[in-house]
Design a binder for these strands. Structure first.
Lengths: 345, 345
DNA sequence: TTGTAGGCGTTATCAG
DNA sequence: CTGATAACGCCTACAA
C-alpha cells in the first residue's frame, strides 16, 4: 500500500528543495530543463497529484459548492441537483449534497457544518419548516460572512441574495385558464397545507384565472394536504363528497394519487375529470393516463443557479464590487398529455 | 461583512497567544478560569468555529465521504443516497455526491478529483460502461492508496473490497416462481442490453425458476432494452409479436412502461398479463394498476454501506490490521400489489 | 538556476 | 498557567 506522495517526499528522493519541485511541476522556466524533466518523470511515475486540502487552505478556495435540498424523493429536486452537478462539473467544482428533510434544524446544522471552510458557496431550497417559522438567521449569517448564496424554488423575500424561481403564478394561471377554455366549470385545487411560497403563488394564479373568467371561488373545491406522509383518507373523502370536472395539483405526486382515487370511483380521465399537475417528472410521463403537467425545468434551474453561484464566487475573488442580486425566472411550460385531451362535454 | 474569525484574530484582540486561545476553547485545565471564560465569551460573540479545512490538513481526516452513483433518475440510487446521507449525518460526516452518468470517464475523473484529499472514503456503484469495459484500474489504485472503498449494487468480483448487494438471484427466482404458481405459463423477461451484473443475476434466477418448474426457456420471451434513452418502438414490437401471460422486469421503469403498452393493446392487468418489477419506488406504488415489485431496500443498503465505510475509516486510524473484506447481502422482499392478484385463468 | 522563509488555521509538544 | 515552535502540504516572494 503506497500512500499518496507529497512534494516533500519527491524533494527528498531527488535531493532537491521542495520549491524546486513545485516550480518544476508547474513548468516554471526558472528551473532548468534537466531537473524539470527529471522531476516530472518521477512525479508521473508516482502519480503525484497536489493535495486539495492543502490547496484549499492556501488559496481559501475549495472548489466545492454546497447544495441543500429539502427532500430527495421529489423528482423535481433531483433534477435541479443534476443540473447543478452537471454545470459545476464543467467548471471543475464538486458538489457537496445535504438533505434537510424539510427540517429547520437539519438545515441549520448542515449549513453550519459546510460553512466552516468546506465550501465556497451555497445553493439551497428552503425547508418547509423554515418557511413556516420564517426564521432566516442562519442564512443572514452566511450572507454576512460574505459567502455567496443562491436560493431556488423555495425562496423568501426576507433573504437578500441571488434567486432562481419559475413563474409559478403565471404557470398556474395558464393551466387553470386552459381548463376553463376546455369547458371545465368546477375546477378543484389540491395544494399543500403548510405555507410553501410556491404553493401559495400557484394558488394565487388559480384564483386569478377563475376570477378573470367569472367563475366563483368555491372553498369546497380546495383540498389542502400535508406535504409529506399523507394518508389517502382525506383525499378519498374529498373526492367522495365533491363534484368537479377538473383538478389542478401543485405537484405530480398529488396529481397521480388523485387520479388513482378518481379512477377508483369509476371516473374517466379526462372525459369526466381532467387533471393537471406541477413538476413534469417520470411520474407524469408514465402515469396512466399520462398526466398533463407544468414543466418546471429543474435541470435548467440547477444550471442557472450553479452558474450564478460560480460567477459570484469567482468575481468575489477579484474585486469586491457593490453587491447586486438577481432573480432569474425560468419560464414554466405546459406539457399536454392524455389527462386533458380537449374534450368539451 | 465580517469574514469568519480565526484563532489568530482572537489572540490579537485579547492580547494572548494563539495556543492559549486554542486551549481555552477546548476547556483545557492548563488555562486559568479567568482567561478561559474571557476567551470563550469573546469567541461566542464572534461565532468562532474552527476551520474545517485546517483541521483536515492537520488531522488527515476530512469527515467527508464521496459517493458516486451512475444516475440520479433511477429512484433506487436516490434512496441509497438518502440512506448514506442519513447515516453519515449521525456520525458527523458530510457526503460529497457525484454522478457518473453511466460513463467510465466521468467515473474516473470524479474519483481522481475526490481522491486527492477531499474525502476519507468512497461509496460507489459502478457505471454501466465500467462494467462493460471491465476496466477497474481506477478502483485498484484507490484501494492501493489505502483509501476505504465500499461498492454497492453494481459490483465486480475483480475488485477486492467491502460490498453491499441484494440477493438478486434469489429474489428473481422467487418472483418467477410466484408467477408460475399463479398459473402463468408464458413468462417474459425484460432486461437490459449491456452487461450489468445485477441484470445478469436476475436473469439467472429467472432461468433457474423456469427450469425447476419444467417450463422451457423461450428466447422469444426475452426482451433486452438499452439501459437509457430507449424509444418505445422495440417494446411495442415485442408486445405486438409475442404471446405472454406474465412479465418480469429488472427495474420499475421498464415495468411501468411495459404495462402502458400492454394496456394500450387492450390487455387487462393482471387478468391477461401479470407484471412484477424490481425496485419498489414511487412509480410502483402509484402505477395503475399498482405494480407488484421487489423491494431492494435502497435506504437500508445505503445505511449499511455507510456504516461499513465509516467503520473502516475509523479503524484505519488505529491499528492497520490484516485487511478483511465483507459482503453484506440485503434481503429483497416481494411486495404484492394489484399487478399480480392471484388469478389463475 | 536553486533554495529559504513565511503563511494559510489548527493542534500538540515542550519550554518558560 | 502561558507562550513559542513545529507540523500538516502547498505556494510564492525573495534571497543566494
Amino acid at each position: 500500500m503506497k500512500k499518496k506522495i507529497t512534494l516533500k517526499q519527491i524533494a527528498r528522493e531527488l535531493e532537491v528543495s521542495i520549491s524546486t519541485v513545485s516550480k518544476a511541476l508547474k513548468n516554471s522556466k526558472e528551473i532548468s530543463k534537466d531537473t524539470t524533466e527529471k522531476i516530472q518523470a518521477f512525479a508521473k511515475l508516482y502519480h503525484y497529484k497536489p493535495n486539495n486540502i492543502a490547496l484549499s487552505l492556501k488559496n481559501k478556495r475549495t472548489r466545492n459548492i454546497g447544495v441543500i435540498i429539502p427532500d430527495i424523493v421529489h423528482h423535481f429536486f433531483t433534477t435541479v441537483f443534476r443540473g447543478i452537478e452537471q454545470y459545476a462539473d464543467t467548471k471543475g467544482y464538486n458538489v457537496i449534497a445535504c438533505v434537510s428533510d424539510e427540517s429547520f434544524e437539519k438545515e441549520v446544522i448542515n449549513m453550519e457544518m459546510l460553512a466552516n471552510g468546506s465550501i465556497d458557496g451555497f445553493i439551497l431550497a428552503l425547508s418547509a419548516e423554515t418557511q413556516q417559522k420564517k426564521d432566516f438567521h442562519h442564512l443572514m449569517e452566511i450572507i454576512d460572512q460574505g459567502m455567496p448564496l443562491v436560493l431556488f424554488d423555495r425562496v423568501a423575500d426576507e433573504v437578500v441574495c441571488d434567486k432562481v424561481v419559475i413563474n409559478d403564478f403565471e404557470a398556474s394561471y395558464m393551466a387553470t385558464k386552459k381548463l376553463i377554455e376546455n369547458g371545465r366549470k368546477r375546477i378543484a385545487l389540491i395544494t399543500t397545507e403548510s405555507y410553501l411560497n410556491v404553493s401559495e403563488k400557484r394558488a394565487q394564479g388559480y384564483y386569478k384565472a377563475l376570477k378573470d373568467h367569472d367563475l366563483e371561488l368555491d372553498e369546497n373545491l380546495i383540498l389542502r394536504l400535508p406535504y409529506q406522509f399523507e394518508d389517502e383518507k382525506k383525499s378519498e373523502a374529498f373526492f367522495a363528497s365533491t363534484i368537479m370536472d377538473a383538478v389542478l395539483c401543485v405537484n405530480e405526486i398529488f396529481a397521480v394519487r388523485a387520479m388513482r382515487i378518481a379512477q377508483g370511483n369509476g371516473k374517466k380521465i379526462p372525459e369526466d375529470i381532467a387533471f393537471i399537475g406541477f413538476t413534469d417528472g417520470i411520474l407524469s410521463k408514465l402515469a396512466n393516463p399520462a398526466l398533463t403537467s407544468i414543466a418546471q425545468h429543474g435541470e435548467q434551474m440547477g444550471k442557472v443557479a450553479a452558474k450564478m453561484l460560480i460567477e459570484k464566487i469567482e468575481r468575489d475573488d477579484e474585486i469586491q464590487q457593490v453587491e447586486s442580486f438577481k432573480t432569474a425566472v425560468i419560464e414554466a411550460t405546459l406539457i399536454e398529455r392524455e389527462s386533458t385531451i380537449n374534450q368539451i362535454k
